[in-house]
């Protein structure tokens, strides 16, 4: 007996195809609409408050009026501390992972695992740790230094992973070429590998800066709430994300200032992100030229 064709009727298939197409389009349109809504609120409620004096004056009346100058300074300093600590440490670890230890070997897996675990830890837990270790155990108190160091722990895995993959993208031809010329490992690293991977390293750095700047939960209990202009690293300082949180939750009538601060933060993040993309493009162009 010949095989019977068991395919469902064509009408069913047609309906299925149409439904899938409609689902994909409508889901996408909904996401686009929500994004437009979010963007409209940000611009509509935030843009009106933003002018030069908003960026350059201190907050008044718990932030309802006045500006965000000390908050921008605190944010900047916290991020600088975080990157200044995490970047060298991260680069060195990445070099070890990409250039020294055996791929897939025990050392690589061990370090890799602990980095992946570190990357997965929720930011509020970093906040707990930062509070217990930096603020209390090391006696730094609620300070910009404690906040920056906590953020450094948080962005370290990102910096290491991006730098590692950047270094791995450097073609082996150059490593062999350097070895064949009898160059030392240090010379190969400084003269060839790091310059060749520089755009990727910088792009990773931008990613880390962006992550640090957007962080709130890890900072509330480490760098604190004080919205005065910080005078030293040991002063408490309020980061911009903490400012947004405080205005929207604890200050009645602070929504407009919160939206304005949010807009500033997002514009900063987009600038940093564009820099990262631009650097990645440079990398791509270079690679194409090489081939």
């Amino acid at each position: 007996m010949p095989d019977v064709c068991v395919a469902p009727p064509a009408a069913y298939l047609h309906v299925r195809d149409t439904l899938l197409r409609a689902a994909v389009w409508s889901a996408t349109l909904l996401v686009g609409a929500v994004f437009a809504w979010l963007l409209a609120d940000l611009l509509g409620q935030g843009a009106a408050r933003i002018d030069w004096s908003f960026l350059t004056s201190a907050p008044r009346n718990a932030g309802r009026s006045g500006g965000i100058a000390p908050i921008l300074v605190s944010t900047l300093v916290v991020v600088v501390v975080a990157i200044a600590v995490a970047a060298p440490l991260g680069l060195a670890t990445a070099v070890l992972l990409a250039e020294v230890v055996r791929r897939g070997g025990r050392t690589e897996r061990l370090i890799g695992l602990s980095l992946d675990v570190l990357a997965g830890i929720p930011s509020i837990v970093f906040g707990l740790f930062g509070n217990a270790f930096f603020c209390i155990w090391l006696g730094l108190g609620f300070s910009i230094l404690a906040g920056g160091l906590t953020l450094a722990c948080m962005v370290l895995p990102i910096l290491i992973r991006t730098a590692e993959s950047g270094l791995r993208m450097v073609p082996n031809d150059w490593r062999f070429g350097a070895a064949a010329l009898g160059l030392s490992r240090a010379a190969t690293l400084w003269q060839i590998l790091i310059p060749a991977a520089a755009p990727a390293l910088l792009a990773g750095l931008m990613l880390g800066i962006g992550r640090a700047m957007a962080e709130t939960a890890a900072l509330v209990f480490t760098s604190g709430y004080v919205d005065r202009m910080p005078s030293s690293l040991w002063d408490s300082g309020r980061a911009i994300s903490v400012h947004i949180y405080d205005l929207s939750m604890n200050v009645a009538g602070g929504d407009q200032s919160a939206y304005a601060s949010a807009l500033v933060l997002i514009v900063l993040l987009i600038m940093i992100n564009s820099a990262a993309i631009w650097l990645a493009d440079i990398l791509l162009v270079r690679r194409i030229k090489m081939i």
Partner: peptide, 17 residues
């Protein structure tokens, strides 16, 4: 852009909208 939006900004938007 959505992926890069800080969660505190999403929270602010959610709270007011």
């Amino acid at each position: 852009l959505l992926a890069g939006t800080p969660s505190v900004v999403l929270g602010l938007w959610g709270l007011t909208t």
